[in-house]
């Protein structure tokens, strides 16, 4: 296989404590994203999905650090890369779209100027050319009357338009990897539909790969080709979206799918997952999901289960996978 665009290996993110043990938030995470791939990262609040994305963009909150592991972008190591050099990657190579466009945009600068800033800095365009590009990008994201809207301030625009501005901004320098942190969670369902469409179309046109973090399984199903399911800082299942959805091999993934209302199966009962996510500051030995898992056996609480290939291109971190999903396997 060719070199992946992004290769995350044994990435561990946490809070370093001067005394005692560190708090590990994301533990030994590995995944690859190929050129042009659409990769979804799914999990509930606190599973570490957003922090993983932020680590790639070097936007970890203060105090939270990459403790070990590596992030290779096109073969170049991002962990420990000098800030100046890394910054040059952000924009022309890697760009990010945030959940809440109101707080991610600068409220006192016109949106056109905000979009044009990247192309001026990284592509060396003149002020005029950059603004033309900005307006062109706005038109591509489906903003009506882009030339006029470019002179608007963020507060003058609706949520959907702001998110389109974010997309235009992120794609203005032609990045190869687009990081999306719940880009449509704050939007209404009809607007979400429009924004996802625009995002897909533009990624298809430019060939950019997508790393898409969300908690909405249905959105992943419609947007991504591959996914990783995270629980308590681990990837517990990964594979092609349609394989994982039709044949989940980890009890947590199955629990998530069973608890989410499916529009196409209105009569199916929703089965909640009992219990609560673990406290990351007091991790116990063994599988993090074991206390909530209906299938847990003694061996589950001894060691963290290894990630096993359960089918071609489909991995799950569950030692009991074969037993639990025997019925499905047949």
């Amino acid at each position: 296989m060719e070199t992946p665009l992004l290769s995350v290996k044994s990435l561990t993110i946490g809070i370093r404590r001067p005394k005692g043990s560190d708090t590990i938030i994301v533990d030994d995470l590995s995944f690859d994203i190929q050129q042009g791939e659409r990769f979804g990262i799914v999990g509930e609040s606190g599973s570490g999905k957003s922090l993983t994305l932020r680590a790639i963009a070097d936007l970890l909150p203060k105090g939270v650090k990459v403790l070990s592991g590596s992030i290779l972008y096109n073969g170049a190591e991002l962990v420990g890369m000098p800030t100046a050099q890394r910054r040059k990657l952000m924009g022309p190579e890697i760009a990010m779209i945030f959940q809440e466009p109101m707080t991610a945009l600068n409220p006192v600068i016109r949106v056109g100027d905000q979009i044009a800033e990247g192309p001026r800095r990284y592509l060396g365009l003149s002020k005029k050319a950059a603004m033309e590009l900005a307006i062109e990008m706005m038109a591509k994201t489906g903003i009506p009357d882009p030339a006029r809207r470019a002179r608007a301030y963020p507060h003058e625009l609706s949520g959907g338009l702001r998110q389109r501005i974010m997309i235009a901004m992120a794609l203005s320098c032609g990045p190869k990897l687009l990081l999306c942190d719940e880009p449509t969670t704050a939007l209404d369902v009809t607007v979400q539909h429009q924004v996802l469409k625009v995002l897909e179309e533009l990624c298809d046109d430019s060939g950019a790969a997508l790393a898409f973090v969300t908690h909405d399984l249905a959105v992943v199903n419609q947007t991504c080709s591959d996914l990783a399911v995270m629980y308590a800082g681990h990837i517990i299942e990964a594979g092609r979206v349609k394989d994982v959805f039709s044949d989940p091999r980890h009890p947590y993934t199955k629990g998530l799918l069973d608890s989410a209302p499916d529009f196409d199966q209105p009569d199916r009962d929703l089965v909640p997952i009992p219990g609560f996510p673990p406290n990351l500051a007091a991790r116990t030995a063994g599988c993090a999901f074991a206390p909530r898992c209906a299938f847990a056996v003694d061996a589950c609480t001894v060691a963290i289960p290894p990630t096993l290939e359960v089918a071609p291109g489909h991995k799950a971190a569950c030692i009991e996978s074969e037993r639990i999903f025997e019925g499905i396997l047949a």
């Binding site: 009809t190 249905a218 419609q222 959805f245 039709s246 529009f263 196409d264």
Partner: peptide
């Protein structure tokens, strides 16, 4: 329009 905007859970139903 609302119904058609709902993201679906199975690949066949888009």
């Amino acid at each position: 329009a609302l119904i058609d905007s709902i993201p679906r859970m199975s690949a066949e139903s888009v």
